[in-house]
Amino acid sequence: MRKILLGAVGLLGFLVVWQLIPALGLVDPDYLPYPTDVFGRLAQEVRDLAFWRRVRLTMTSWAIGLTVATLAAVALGTVVGMVPFLRRATHTTVEFLRPVPSVALIPLAVLMFGLQMRAALVIIVYAAFWQVFVQVIYGVADVDSVARDTARSFGLTRAERLRYLILPTALPYLMTGLRLGAAVALILHVTAEMVIGNPGLGRMIELSRSAGDAVGLYGLVVVTGMLGLLVNVVFRFVERRSLAWHQSVLADEAAR
């Protein structure tokens, strides 16, 4: 209760400061519009179907990209993580490819796919893939050696080992990777829309900037922040639910 109250005070304080900066003439309202104007415009926008269509466009390709990246990363990560030879052989390659900033691929994606959705997807998939892949490798490799030997001496088949041994060990890692990947995919997707110009929220931001529509620009920034927040909250919720049996979550619950 106290937390919620204080949080609300903080939020309100921020809005008041924002309102005061242009009101006191510290910054020209053309460059930093009043929050009342920004939220007023937002209230209008959310009644417009075109706005929701753009949100849907953005979120659809985000979801497709994240799904493709996750599936590929889980499949490859499980194989690589389970075979020590592959793990050693791919280590340097992974360490080299992972830090390559995915935005570096934007020009390439533009050349190959132009304004199609695939151009943005290439970038999203590349960015999100490494987040999940690395976590899955760590997770699969983290299987307790006693548990593994036990499973083997009890004669568990490969499929059973995958289901009862490797999956539960790797799941927390996978969830972390998924949460990071989801955030990164959203960032990269909005970026791609801004730079490449695929239809969606990112392009709207770029259009409002070039049209000098500061109110609309700030409104859209707020919207992307909300979407990011939503993605975070949802994935944290999924993480907690799917790991409800796990020690880290149980200990947390007990401490409450």
Binding site: I187, V190, M194, V221, G225, G228, V231
Partner: peptide, 8 residues
């Protein structure tokens, strides 16, 4: 603020 995609 953390949730806002930085390129925006």
């Amino acid at each position: 603020f953390r949730a806002i995609p930085p390129p925006v």
